[in-house]
Design a protein around this nucleic acid. Sequence first.
DNA 1: CATTGATTTGAACGGGTGTTCAGTTAATGC
DNA 2: GCATTAACTGAACACCCGTTCAAATCAATG
Lengths: 195, 195
Amino acid sequence: MARTQGSHSGTTGPKVREAALRLFAKHGFAAVSMRQIAGEVGVQAGALYNYTPDKQSLLFDLMKTHLDELLAAYAELPERGRPLRALREFTRFHIRFHAERPDEVFIAYMELRNLTPENFAEIEVLRRTYERHLEDILREGVERGAFDVVDPRIAAMAIIAMLNGVNTWYREGGRLSLPEVQDLYWDMVRKSVLA
Amino acid sequence: MARTQGSHSGTTGPKVREAALRLFAKHGFAAVSMRQIAGEVGVQAGALYNYTPDKQSLLFDLMKTHLDELLAAYAELPERGRPLRALREFTRFHIRFHAERPDEVFIAYMELRNLTPENFAEIEVLRRTYERHLEDILREGVERGAFDVVDPRIAAMAIIAMLNGVNTWYREGGRLSLPEVQDLYWDMVRKSVLA
DNA sequence: CATTGATTTGAACGGGTGTTCAGTTAATGC
DNA sequence: GCATTAACTGAACACCCGTTCAAATCAATG
């Protein structure tokens, strides 16, 4: 046997990325083999190399795509307004965006050490860019006297760490709805920086 | 060759745990081989099995020891006092304790999925016990009217996630000293729950 | 100083790893 | 309907994996 019925790069390609995403998130990059991914796709391991030059690139592409989408989605937030309003929009956006993609988020935070140094550096720039958006909101709030934040850089990291924590426990259909979660966290974020 | 000069379970045993700790933290459990650990210890791979029944137990022991020490250290905190004071002590304790053991903390949060279900369950009980200490402080603060927290369980997880974030950037000898970090975070934690 | 017991070696076990590629088959364009 | 191209197989490559164990050597004991 060789080329199989119904085979298409347009369908196999996404399947490869989806399988890798799910398996990496569940078992970790190092614990997943190319043969496992191929098995999920319904293909032999060799066929994966039509879609990625190697395993490392597969991981990098997943992370890069995730962060590109994060920055693009944030950039398209309509009318962010003044500091307090902007901070609320950031908080709500962050929780929603991350709750919608638990696997991508998990990989992006857990598998950083499995990137080559060059790939790591590229991902870090994107992550840092996102953090700086929040940092800028805080800084402007301090200038306008709306916020009392001694160190905006630290505060930004603290808030993001807190918001990322949602993904460790939030599940759709659980005790709390997403809007309820957003309200609870917004209450804490707001008070933590208020003057 | 067989038994080597100066060999002692009293020295090799700790060396094995230290090497495993460092390597697991740096490369991840799945990416580290028993031969790598043995190499760091200065021994052949077979010798490791005098000190652990298998690789999995090595990981579990590291996590269990870490969490046992965490709970023991918290239990020995002198005079925690009323809610606000207790919350401050918790915050300062958490930051210091975790900053002192970055490798243990990293492993305890990143390698949970590499535990067998039984081992995972045991670790989760300990982690949950620690979380509940904070939850109890918050609950008492709410009862006494000192705190305004809608959902103490969620708030406890949010605060711990925020404090854990310190380990992603804090390094001894960096821009901020540990007391400065403790002050910055205490300021945010305090305000986030205040009535 | 001989003996016992603790400690390690080194080889072996069966199996898995990422990656390459010649060969084969299905889909596509003319 | 036929030639071309895209997609995939299956085997092979060299190597690494966790774990076991008889044999060898050292430390400790009496």
